[in-house]
Design a protein around this nucleic acid. Structure first.
Length: 500
RNA sequence: GCCUCUUUAGCUCAGUUGGUUAGAGCGUCGGACUGUUAAUCCGCAGGUCCUUGGUUCGAGCCCAAGAAGAGGCGCCA
């Protein structure tokens, strides 16, 4: 038996092996489904999904949502061998690919050899050929990859990640690896996880009994990054167009279906760009990625689409989505995102029915209030019914690095709000004027002396520039139609949970 | 961190007003069948009713505290 497979090495795709009479190497099921069945002998390896009638094995190898039907003539195989063909078992099969006699599939493999690679005790294996709740699957995250739902999610997650790199590469961006361990604690994006190699039982102390981080590994206090933005800005002010795509850590005690303690974020940063071009970039990126998933993952999307339709049937009419998953994705590509200012949004909200009738938990009365998620949801899901880009927020509710507008009270910030997700992108044109930036940092008690490396970009050839952060898992949530962010990352980290 | 809800068999759930021995479907196991599509049919087994304490003649059910999970809110991406 041959293990492994041929790999693309020269940049040219492997020739399709559909016409070869005998294929000795393992062939992925996704490839088999493209072959014309003509009795060719093939070798398959995968995991058993079901074994029906002591004759039909549904085999899945993760290369595709679809199973391949294997047919065994039980009289030709040892009874004790067939007894080990249980749900979840890993098997290797050699047989002939033929047109299926049954109606559920186009082709099937008539087995000549069958080998158990790994047994799976059916009394203990938690996955059954039935629908499991997402909560239960979350409790066995190490095995949930084996389900149709999570197989589809993680194949799509890959496609999204790949499309993001593809988009930036095609548009002349350079991929920058911003540091994961940071010595800067002034990024201002939330609580941070400390990184230390000190002995926590008995740390070194300074003369005034404080913990002496000067003796720590890096000679100073360090943390896991909460954003690669500041580093990306440094790179953009030399390479013009850059992006980061890496893990990000927030030690916030957030318990919601939209937050993780460890998540992945995409942060493009562009020199010689203003807020409008920042919006154009974000909108183009999101549409490109969604189109790629529609093009490359039709089966997985269809499965998640139908799954959602089934789920919705159990809900009351008024809580159901107006559009199916695939329709939502197409709608998102075909329509321009609504672009309005914070000030316009406040006017819409102030005059809205829920506000007049006192339905909002936080009523909108005056300009300057931060928008609550109920307000964002109203704008996106009820008023505009499409993605909304909100811009030019009051400076007092936004970060220090955002460029101050001429009105003296707003900054060139923009958030993109998606239905069902809320904020998926947060960005801004950056303050490139040194004196204004320093003044704002002082007002917000950001220690200037620690940020000299950042301020240097404003001293030496500063220029207008802009960028944003895109929450990768939030994008995966939208594209897959899932509801809980813990279901779109393989091993979710959240307060009280770092299992696996 | 705050609020609400949930916790009964491996999984998904039902369990009446507090009353005898806590049920169903699916799965497992045993058997039958053999071109099935989460195969079908027959049968067996399977329970710390989340934990602790309380009320009561009697608690899966009522009360209190705690734990775990989910949803809403805040922080944000």
């Amino acid at each position: 038996m041959f293990y492994g497979s041929g790999y693309v090495q020269s940049g040219k795709p492997l020739p399709l092996r559909r016409n070869k009479a005998v294929i000795m190497q393992r062939i992925p099921i996704s490839d088999v489904l493209k072959m014309v069945p003509s009795g060719q002998q093939i070798t398959l390896m995968g995991w058993v999904r079901t074994f029906r009638s002591n004759r039909f094995i549904a085999l899945n190898d993760g290369s595709s949502l679809h199973n391949l039907q294997l047919v065994v003539d039980f009289e030709k195989f040892d009874e004790n061998l067939l007894k080990r063909v249980t749900v979840g078992a890993a098997i290797s099969v050699k047989g002939n690919l033929v047109e299926s006699l049954g109606s559920g599939q186009a082709q099937e493999v008539h087995c000549e050899q069958l080998e158990i690679l790994g047994d799976c005790d059916p009394g203990e294996y938690p996955l059954q050929p039935k629908k499991h709740s997402l909560e239960f699957l979350r409790s066995i995250a190490h095995l949930r990859f084996r389900t149709n739902t999570f197989g589809a999610i993680f194949r799509i997650r890959h496609q999204i990640a790949f499309a993001i790199h593809e988009f930036f590469h095609q548009n002349g961006f350079f991929y920058i690896h911003s540091p994961i361990i940071t010595g800067s604690d002034a990024e201002g994006a939330g609580e941070m996880f400390r990184v230390t190699s000190l002995n926590l039982e008995n740390p070194p102390r300074t003369e005034d009994a404080q913990i002496d981080y000067g003796k720590d590994f890096f000679g100073k206090s360090t943390h896991l990054t909460v954003s690669g933005q500041l580093e990306a800005e440094l790179a953009a002010l030399a390479l013009s167009k850059v992006y980061t795509f890496g893990p990000t850590f927030r030690a916030e005690n957030s318990n919601t279906p939209r937050h993780l303690a460890e998540f992945w974020m995409i942060e493009p940063e562009v020199a010689f760009a203003d807020l409008k071009s920042n919006m154009d970039l974000a909108e183009a990126l999101l549409k490109f990625v969604i189109q790629k998933v529609l093009d490359h993952c039709p089966d997985d999307l269809k499965f998640l689409n139908d799954r959602e339709v089934d789920e919705e049937k159990t809900k009351p009419q008024n809580e159901r989505s107006e559009m199916s998953l695939i329709d939502r994705l197409k709608f998102c590509i075909e329509n321009n995102f609504e672009r309005i200012s914070y000030t316009e949004a406040i006017e819409i909200l102030r005059n809205s029915n829920p506000n007049k009738k006192g339905k909002f938990q936080y009523p909108i009365d005056k300009w300057g209030a931060d928008l609550q998620s109920e307000h964002e949801r109203f704008l996106v899901e009820k008023h505009f019914k499409k993605p909304v880009i909100l811009s030019d927020y009051p400076k007092d509710i936004k970060a220090f690095y955002m460029r101050q507008n001429d009105d003296g009270k707003t900054v060139a910030a923009m958030d993109i709000l998606f239905p069902g997700i809320g904020e998926i992108v947060g960005g801004s044109q950056r303050e490139e004027r040194l004196s204004l930036l320093e003044k704002r940092m002082s007002e917000m008690h950001i220690p200037l002396e620690e940020m000299g490396w950042y301020l240097d970009t404003r001293k030496y050839g500063s220029c207008p520039h802009a960028g944003f952060g895109l929450g990768f898992e939030r994008l995966v949530l939208f594209v897959t139609g899932m509801n809980n962010i813990r279901d779109v990352i393989p091993f979710p980290r959240f307060p009280g949970n770092a299992e696996y």
